[in-house]
Nucleic acid binder design. Structure first.
Length: 572
RNA sequence: GCGCCCGUAGAUCAACUGGAUAGAUCGCAUGGCUACGAACCAUGAGGUUGGGGGUUCGAAUCCUCCCGGGCGUACCA
């Protein structure tokens, strides 16, 4: 939090010279190069330019008005007008001492807790979850954890696709082509087969399409037989979703599928038409956005020409429900980037429908998964890889690795470690990139066990734990100060101080890869420290200080990993 | 056609939203376990950031024009 102190004082110094200045962009950030210092600001140059001042002279004046002697060495003006701050060891020591006493862990929680609704995962009933679902599931869960860590209230909602036109075809398939044995063996695969079968039959034969429409109408009219089949399809699907979520250790506060809002859809359409927001077009009800450049040519449809509502309508009802139920300050949708237009329409439409709403509506989108040819991802046989197969493969590879590295451990232990490492590797691989970049799927990349990967972080953690196991019963007092005599200690300590800043960035921009980078660097700094600074063999104060550094690094690592949804292990 | 996103080392990705010498990892080469776990550490090679032009103290990032790719573009969600 030192960084925020510096920033506040810097802003005050600027204001003392320029009372009318907007200092919100006067930020202090970590230096790109340690040789320049620990923190820097580049904001003075822009400010000077806008006010037609010489940037170096302005920087000099700011430095004169700035008092940071308690935590920094004399501030340095560099290049065209950077300010470089170098922390005093006593300031670092002070932060470490209070953390070692358990007063904080280098971050602080929000003074005003916000309520955030996060909508993620949202698989469709009767379809197996495949690798495409993992990004939303893992990203959403991680964001929820990050908001919670910083003291916010989060409601997670799995908006599963359990209603809609696909059920007409599924019902035809179920009634005419169901293979009970296949259903018992792998329900989702069988339902997917039925859907594909009827779907292609519909393309060729108008009569099949008619039957599908009739079955759908019957379902929507409450026909007992169709409702029963529908419920069974949902139960079978939910069972398999839960199995995946269990393995991923992902949870939801709510699972309100599309069907939950079914009774409200007609009312929504009536309100929109009644108030003149929606109008008729080619038999459908649509909303035009002539006031918005980006949406001008893209009206949103809220009712199809056959009278049925569609997903925009459902999403409107969902937003209404969320606002009523939780009064969130923000609703976050985690989906792939192809739905950007839909959410632009939805947000604009909701604001027109309920102009008084105060929710920030945020579409957190992510890039596509591509095959090695750069085209949307499929295996050679044209199938998308099933999520359960991916998890199995990850655990198997991790098991082979742990068996090779630690053959002395029992098989049960190795299985458990392989589970933590394998699942962790997948999650980390998914979270460590910029979410908006498309990424190329490859088994070796996703399940890698060396380099910038989960096992690297977990290994650093096990080394820390190993040190504390060797202490056995020995009681350790938190040190009264840190002398930080070796460069590796300083680098590790300074990095610990930045934890809070990174967490803020993660929730501000909904980008968990900042946390991945931070933890990877932390593990790296710990690695150098570990190789160069004996802990147990050190003596007196130094030993106590190094033990405390190890403990703090371990706690930050564990907290960070848990925020990413990764479990830790004591040995591997 | 229109709109959005993208092109960075042999490969996979970063780059704190305009900052200082574009960083990692894999792979490749070299060195290090009689100091706490070598799933580690240290060192090296590898780049005209797709291409041209522009904006300015400063550009992978902003503007513009080409080249190449992905996605979307009213009755799927």
């Amino acid at each position: 939090m030192i960084q925020l102190t510096l920033q506040e004082r810097l802003q005050q110094a600027v204001l003392s010279l320029m009372p009318a200045a907007d200092v919100s962009s006067v930020l202090v950030r970590p230096c790109p190069e340690p040789k320049f210092g620990d923190y820097q600001t580049n904001a003075l140059m822009g400010l000077a330019k806008r006010n037609q001042l010489n940037p170096r002279e302005f920087a000099t004046q700011v430095v004169e008005a700035l008092d940071v002697d308690d935590c920094c060495e004399p501030v340095e003006i560099a290049g065209p007008g950077f300010l470089n701050f170098r922390l005093k060891t006593v300031a670092i020591s002070h932060a470490l001492v209070s953390a070692a006493k358990g007063e904080h862990l280098f971050y602080r929680t929000a003074e005003v807790a916000r309520t955030i609704v996060i909508d993620y995962s949202s698989p469709n009933v009767a379809k197996p979850m495949h690798v495409g679902h993992i990004r939303s599931t893992i990203l959403g869960y991680t964001l929820a954890q990050a908001f919670r860590l910083l003291g916010h209230k989060v409601v997670t909602d799995n908006h599963i696709g359990d209603w809609g036109t696909q059920f007409g075809k599924l019902l035809v398939g179920w009634k005419e082509h169901l293979d009970q044995d296949a259903l018992a063996a792998d329900a989702l695969a069988e339902m997917e087969r039925l859907y594909k079968l009827v779907n292609s039959a519909c393309d060729e034969d108008e009569a099949v399409l008619d039957r599908a429409r009739q079955e759908l109408v019957r379902l929507q009219d409450g026909d007992e037989e169709n409702l029963g089949i529908w419920r069974e399809m949902i139960d079978l699907s939910r069972h398999q979703f839960d199995e995946i979520y269990g393995r991923l250790k992902v949870e939801f506060d709510e699972t309100l599928g599309e069907s939950f809002y079914n009774d409200r859809l007609k009312g929504v359409v009536d309100e929109l038409t009644g108030s003149g927001i929606a109008e008729d077009s080619e038999g459908a009800k649509v909303v035009y956005f002539n006031d918005q450049k980006a949406l001008k040519k893209h009206p949103a449809m809220v009712q199809k020409s056959d009278g049925a509502a569609n997903y925009t309508t459902t999403d409107l009802a969902t937003l209404e429900h969320r606002e009523k139920s939780w009064q969130p300050s923000e609703v976050i949708y985690v989906t792939d980037g192809r739905q950007q237009l839909h959410f632009q329409q939805l947000f604009a439409l909701y604001t027109r429908w309920k102009p008084q709403h105060a929710m920030k509506l945020n579409h957190v989108w992510f890039g596509a998964i591509l095959g090695e040819d750069g085209r949307p991802f499929k295996t050679r046989s044209g199938e998308i890889i099933r999520l359960s197969d991916l998890l199995n493969e990850a655990e198997q590879r991790a098991f082979d690795a742990v068996t090779e590295k630690s053959p002395d451990l029992s098989e049960d232990d190795r299985r458990e470690i392989a589970r933590v490492v394998g699942i962790g590797a997948i999650k980390y691989a998914d979270l460590s990139g910029n979410r908006q970049s498309d990424y190329v799927f490859s088994w070796d990349n996703m399940l890698a066990l060396v380099g910038n990967t989960a096992p690297y972080l977990l290994y650093a953690y096990t080394r820390i734990r190993s040190i504390f196991r060797k202490l056995e019963g020995e009681s350790i007092e938190p040190p009264a100060s840190f002398s930080l005599g070796q460069a590796e200690e300083v680098a590790l300590a300074k990095h610990l101080l930045r934890f809070g800043l990174v967490l803020e960035q993660v929730i501000d921009e909904c980008r968990p890869n900042f946390l991945c980078n931070y933890l990877y660097e932390l593990a790296g700094f710990f690695g150098s420290f570990y190789e160069n600074c004996p802990v147990l063999l050190a003596e007196g104060e130094v030993r106590a200080q190094r033990l405390a550094l190890c403990d703090l690094a371990g706690r930050v690592l564990k907290t960070g990993l848990e925020t990413l949804g990764l479990e830790t292990t004591e040995r591997m």
